[in-house]
């Protein structure tokens, strides 16, 4: 049985001749919280929009819940919750009217959970969407997406505009959702501490390609940042594979390297370093290094 909830194969996207996605391959298994990272303009939102069928791909195939993105039926769409960047809801609707619309269109609707979220977020039902703050719109968008009890929740920078408490509530909700059997979350965020907290698999986009696609533990295991102190001057050039970053200053060399192993360690020892110590890396450090 194919248990990949999200599948992207050889995806290309050009905007006015500019390549934004350059052969992206990505799979998200059922029950996974996948954090998609990348700097501004690397194509995270474009990937999500193509997955949801809002944007056509230039080339390649994308699937959600086993169906082609541009052929998703209403029923299949009803199993996908989406929290959009900027939270563009229907601006001239009141909160209550929008909730009613979403409820009437949904395959299933958990009114009790929705009411709970509305009271947790303290969202007024009688206020127009355009009168809500960005943070309130984000919370409403999240509540609407969660109330349909989605099999797959896709979130594009969902915590943007949320204060610290609301962000914490959001993360707890995401964890609650994932604890329900078989739920999957795909999200991108610029707040890497959030990603580190809930994601169990990470993808890093750079120059339109997936540079890293592995579990968080594996990522931390694979990428090492080492400080070497040499007796004399640090070597200026190293002929070593998979160096991510290298900085030398006097006797000190800071080296960030992928897939650190015994061979690489033996190679470094040929330069006779006086000491070698590992610098702990957070996800944010890894992201910046990459």
């Amino acid at each position: 049985m194919n248990d990949m909830v999200v599948k992207i194969e050889d995806l290309y996207k050009y905007f006015d001749g500019r390549c934004v996605l350059n052969g992206v391959n990505l799979s998200v298994p059922r029950g996974c919280i996948y954090g998609l990272l990348g700097r501004n303009g690397t194509g995270k939102t474009t990937i999500i929009r193509i997955l949801l069928g809002l944007e056509p791909a230039t080339r390649g195939a994308t699937e959600l819940l086993g169906a082609e993105s541009n052929r998703l039926t209403a029923r299949q769409r009803g199993k996908i919750g989406y929290v959009a960047e900027g939270h563009h809801l229907i601006q001239n609707y009141k909160v209550g009217k929008l909730a009613q619309l979403c409820k009437n269109l949904a395959n299933q609707w958990d009114q009790k959970f929705f009411d709970h979220l509305m009271s947790t977020f303290r969202l007024p039902m009688d206020r127009k969407i355009k009168k809500l703050s960005a943070g309130m719109r984000a919370q409403l968008n999240l509540a609407l997406a969660m109330a349909i009890n989605p099999e797959l929740l896709i979130m594009d920078d969902p915590t943007l505009g949320l204060d610290t408490i609301a962000r914490r509530q959001f993360l707890e909700l995401a964890i609650d959702l994932i604890q329900k059997e078989g739920r999957t979350i795909l999200f991108c965020s610029h707040i890497l501490s959030d990603v580190e907290r809930i994601a169990d698999r990470i993808g890093i986009l750079r120059a339109g390609k997936i540079l890293v696609d592995c579990s968080l533990e594996e990522l931390k295991r694979r990428i090492k940042k080492l400080r070497f102190i040499f007796a004399d001057k640090a070597p200026s050039q190293l002929h070593l594979n998979e160096i991510i970053n290298q900085q030398s200053s006097g006797r000190e060399m800071i080296l960030t390297v992928a897939n650190w192993n015994q061979q690489k360690q033996a190679f470094m020892e040929t330069f006779g370093p006086a000491s070698c110590s590992e610098i702990a890396l957070s996800l944010e450090d890894i992201f910046i290094e990459c």
Binding site: L52, L54, T73, R75, A84, Q91, N107
Partner: peptide, 17 residues
């Protein structure tokens, strides 16, 4: 401009509907 269809498309509907 108001991205209404974009929002509706993310609910249990299709563009045809």
């Amino acid at each position: 401009n108001a991205k209404v269809s974009t929002f509706l498309c993310t609910l249990a509907t299709t563009r045809h509907q």
